[in-house]
Design a protein around this nucleic acid. Structure first.
Lengths: 259, 259
DNA sequence: CCTACAATGTGCGGCAACGCACATATATAT
DNA sequence: ATATATATGTGCGTTGCCGCACATTGTAGG
């Protein structure tokens, strides 16, 4: 694909519908919201907001992934949840809290749609289709948080790495992620060496392949098998909450048909 | 207080206002909701709902405490969050999901107010004061879940025990809780022996006193000192989200003034 | 090409928590 | 009072992960 033809790689998120939440809105809501959307780029490691920040915008990731982290007093951190094209950043705005004691850090560079907080709040309180959708998304995020807590308590680094890879993969267009083991360790809240060991074990089994900041998933079925149940629980629950859009339309798989 | 006069112990939850959410509702909302409330008793270990259950009622604890647990495929469990008189059970009903993949188990026996799901949903979608209040409560619950995840990753059993005791204490009228170390271990997702060791250490330091299913907190300041930062984060955030009731009234401490 | 830096590999000792076994203590009922 | 069940105490060896130190291997920039 080295021709001059525009590939999906070059315009990976050219329409808001790359974000699943934006995609399933009814036409009249789209008509009100979409004019206020602005396509922005997220770079790896960028912070969208810090603990306690009053947010001015919400963001709907298109092909980027953002991690919600809690940063401890001693500086170490742990990932609370992952947000990609299935969701949005800035839940606190419509939940009424305006801020959270967390940090949002870009885990995978890419694009997102920015929307002024006021526009979202206005639409939310109109009680349109968006209202229920955002609440159901929030509930799915709670499931992810709950499962992260369980996973941290009971599962090995290897199981957690598998879960993390799967969650990330679900939010990316390819089987490839740009990510160092050091960064993964920060997310999982474990030692870098622990990630190295688990990753090399996975590589020896032919499940993944990696070199210096790049990971490719080769055998997803086996990755799912090696993961703990946490991934499946989160997946099934978010599918249930978000793919069943009553009285509007149903989506049976993760992909979106655009055009 | 051994006279025949009715003590607060005998009617510990005689009015709905013992629940903080119900207490701060404006009069007209109370007028609509309260006639549908039914006082019910929760017994220790009772399950309010199982994973995936479609709930018929929401519950507003008065002097009882309920734990939200995730039960793993192998049967072991981990506590996701604690709900007492500051909150309600059945968030999924107004969030739109109708169910969650969790289990709600009574951790401390007592009373609660039961409300039919339909009544709550109707009031919620009227967009009354209740709407914002429930969303802010939900956000505070998310903070608790997030912090549980962090705590499970980074903190010792002793720190977690302190956090757990403090969270429970905040939801109880006295400094005394009826709870075996075995049950605490189930909540924290650790060995019973681990709880025994930490508890006896706390007792030796004079922070708590316990005997066979009963724990009394003697030195709360020290308990807070020995706890990890997670307790404080959750406390500050839920105070921020729930004690500031804009345009209605402000509450400056945890207690309620009734009569 | 070579240097410098960043990413990954590996080998320690140490420790918190685990699973298991069993001893002891304290409530409750007959 | 005695028996029984439940709750708590204690001592193993084992394990998964930690912190640290350092070797190796890629990748980018001069």
């Amino acid at each position: 694909m080295s021709s001059s033809i525009i590939t999906s790689d070059e315009i990976p998120a050219a329409v808001p519908e790359h974000n699943h939440l934006l995609a399933v809105l009814p036409p009249e809501v789209k008509a009100r919201l979409f004019p206020h959307l602005k396509l922005v780029k997220f770079t790896l490691g960028q912070s969208l907001y810090e603990s306690g920040d009053q947010m001015q915008f919400v963001y709907f990731p298109a092909d980027s992934i953002v991690s919600l982290l809690y940063v401890m007093e001693n500086g170490s951190s742990a990932e609370i949840s992952i947000v990609g094209n299935e969701g949005l950043l800035g839940i606190a705005l419509f939940m009424g809290g305006e801020s959270t004691p967390n940090r949002a850090v870009v885990q995978s560079a890419g694009n997102a749609y920015q929307l002024p907080a006021l526009i979202l709040k206005a639409e939310f309180s109109r009680h349109s289709e968006l209202h229920g959708l955002l609440l159901r998304y929030t509930q799915s995020l709670m499931t992810q948080m709950a499962q992260t807590a369980v996973c941290n308590r009971h599962h090995t680094i290897e199981q957690q790495l598998c879960r993390w890879l799967l969650l990330s993969l679900d939010r990316l267009p390819t089987d490839h992620l740009t990510m160092t083991q050091e960064l993964i360790a920060n997310m999982l809240g474990v030692r870098r060496e622990g990630v190295t060991e688990s990753a090399s074990k996975l590589q020896r089994q032919g499940v993944i392949r990696y070199q210096r900041g790049h990971i490719t998933v080769l055998d997803r079925p086996n990755l799912e098998r090696l993961s703990c149940e946490c991934y499946k629980v989160v997946k099934i629950e978010s599918d249930r909450l978000l793919h069943y859009i009553p009285a509007i339309k149903r989506q049976c798989d993760n992909s979106l048909i655009i055009l």
